[in-house]
Amino acid sequence: MRLSYVIRRVFFVFMVIWTAATINFVLPRLTGRDPIKEQLMQQIASAGRKPEDAEQMWRKYNDLFGLDKPLWQQYLSYMSSVARLDFGYSINSYPRTVMEIIIARGRLTLPFLSVAIFIAFVTGILLGALLGWNKTPKWISAIVVPPLMVFSSVPQFLVALVLIYFVAFRAKLFPLGDPYPKTMIEDWSNPAFLAKYAYHAVLPILSVVIVEASGWALGMRAMMVTVEGEDYATFAEAKGLKNSRIFFRYLMRNALLPSLTGLALRLGFIITGAAVTETFFNYSGIGSTLSTAISTFDYFLLYGICLIMVVSIALATFIMDMIYPLLDPRIAYRGQRG
C-alpha cells in the first residue's frame, strides 16, 4: 500500500467532515432568521428555567457562534469548537452537554448495531454464495430469492414494525423499549446486565439483519455467478478438487471482495436506517435521541448527533479502505482512483 494513497484517503475523510460541519454552519443562516435563537428564546421564556441557566446557555451560544462578529470569524470559531468536539449544551436538558448525551446514548447503540451489521454481513454472503452456487438446486433459489428481493427493498423500520406487532406484542417473546430493564444499573462488567442487554437487543438486531442480509445475499449471488464463469473456476473443477474447497477457496473468496466494498458504501444507510428503527422500538439509543432532538427542536443536540454520525461513518469507511488491500492482494493502489 502506497503512502500517497493513505494520505489521499485521510484528506478525503477530512474533506467529508469539513463539508458536513460547513452544512451545519450554513443551514441555519439560510433561513434568513435564526431558528436556534428562536428556540433558545422560547426555552428561556418558558417556565422552569432559571434565569442564570438561560444566561449561561446564551453566553455559550454566543461563544460558539460569536454572533456579534463578522461571518468569517463566526465560521472560524465554530470550526474550532467542532474540532474540539464541543457542540455546546443541549437546549432541552440543559446542564448536560451535547457530547455527554451522545456518549451516554451512543454507548447503548454501538454494541448492538455492530453485532447486527456483522451478523447481517456474514449470513448475507453465506446465503448468497449458496444461492449462486451451481451445485445448489435451482428450485431453492426460486423459493428464496423473491422474499429476499422484497426484504432488501424496504426500510428497516417496516420490518421492525411487523416484528413489534407479531413477536413483541402478540407472541410476547421479546421486550420493547429500553435497552435494559429500568430496574437495572448500566454496568458493562456485570454479566447479568449484558445478558439483559442482549435479550433487549434481539428485535432491533433482527430488523437490521433481515433487511441488510437480504441485500448482501442478492449481491453475493450475482457475484458468484460471475466468478463461476471465470477460467480458474473451471480449472479448479477440472483438477477434481473437493466441492468444499472450490466453494470456499475459489468461488467465495473471489466473490467476497465486491461485497466488502458494498459494506463500506452502505454503512451510512444502515446506521441512519437503524436510527429510525430505534425510534419504532422506543429503544433509547442514539437514534431515538436524534428523533427526540428533532421533535423538541433541540438544535445543538441535533447538529451534534448528525456530525458525530458523519464522522464515525467516514472513519469506519476509512478503516475498511485500509483493510481492503490486505484482503485482496491484486489491489496495490498505485495512485489511480476508480
Binding site: M15, V16, F269, I271, Y299
Partner: peptide, 22 residues
C-alpha cells in the same frame, strides 16, 4: 459528488427539514 455521497443523505435531509421547520 464523492464527498457529498459520503455524508449520509438522510442526515442532510434531517438537518434541512428541521432547520426549515417553519
Amino acid at each position: 459528488i464523492d464527498i457529498y455521497m459520503s455524508i449520509p443523505g438522510f442526515l442532510i435531509l434531517v438537518l434541512v427539514a428541521s432547520t426549515f421547520r417553519n
